[in-house]
Nucleic acid binder design. Structure first.
Lengths: 172, 172
DNA sequence: ACAGTATCGTTTGGGTCCAAACGTTCGCCA
DNA sequence: TGGCGAACGTTTGGACCCAAACGATACTGT
């Protein structure tokens, strides 16, 4: 904790949360859920911007392009629809991202030898070399961002987020 | 925990993490940091999409438009640069979002009466009524997404995310 | 006073993102 | 076997997103 304030109950409420309580104190609001979810959005937004401006800028990669290349690096050649699902983007968006990466020689496209509706996407040698250099740097930055959390806290953070993912992935 | 598996050390590793360990096991990687940060991205991405398709679609609002309207609803009339900062977007992006909301009669723009470089943005009565109806529904969905976490876990989640935000907001 | 500098919101150009429409290819079944 | 529905990737249209350039306004120092 950087500041020297006492550690009472509401002390780590950010000002925004106090203002919201003042504005809508009479509504039935789950402030714990609000703080948790809105902080997820805020961290993701800020961290994505940060990564794009630091480690990804050195390789001139957008965050999405990095994500797609990472998927291909870890899992090898895959059908386009699966790449889109694992990267968390629509198939239409994937078309553009793959085209960009293809122009730069980092990924390759080919039609499935049997089912010609399918497209197989893979990382080229150059793409793999890029990730072998880039991913450790990216992870070093992930470690720096979470430096104030001990390993147990990081596991709890990841686990709580997974429990939200489970709800999001429920059918219906 | 929904499944009945034993609770050994690696049990809540998702398959992706196992595959990454297999792929890059020889690198010096902080897997706890990787799981935590990448889950932040994944939850934010999925939850944003979910919110846009459910509670926000009923009011035909994009996630960003909702965020900007929320800021104005909570804090009242504000200078455009502050709205952009609090919504986590650039001032150029804010111009477009405010223009969209203005066309729909949810926010209003006016020049600062003294400093004519500044623009003051505020929620209209209609914008405030919209948020008074929408925000409780939005929060009910936030509560549903975090239903598997008890209040203490939600507080810990929010706190861990705030500690990442502190690092991100460090100068340099 | 007034020229130079700084700051504001807007505009522009290029990239990302989605849903929906489209053409191609496959599988099913009469 | 041949037509029909389903599934695939691509294209299109519109919203979002940023950096950089721009014009208007305010401040500063001489």
């Amino acid at each position: 904790m950087p500041s020297g304030f006492s550690s009472g109950d509401d002390d780590d409420l950010i000002q925004a949360e106090r203002d919201v309580r003042a504005r809508i104190g009479d509504m039935e609001i789950d402030f714990d859920a609000m703080a948790a979810v809105s902080n997820v959005f805020r961290v993701a937004n800020t961290a994505r911007y940060h990564m794009e401006r630091t480690v990804l800028a050195e390789h001139d990669l957008s965050f999405r392009a990095f994500t797609v290349l990472w998927v291909l690096w870890v899992w090898g050649e895959r059908e386009a629809r699966h790449v889109a699902a694992e990267a968390g983007i629509s198939k239409g968006t994937l078309t553009g991202v793959v085209s960009t990466l293809e122009k730069r020689g980092l990924v390759a496209r080919r039609t499935h030898p049997i089912d010609k509706r399918l497209v197989l996407v893979s990382a080229t040698d150059q793409g793999q070399r890029t990730m072998e250099k880039l991913f450790p740097v990216f992870n070093r930055e992930e470690r720096r961002l979470t430096a104030d959390l001990d390993p147990e806290q990081k596991k709890l953070l990841a686990g709580s987020l997974r429990s939200i993912l489970r709800v999001l992935e429920e059918p219906g």
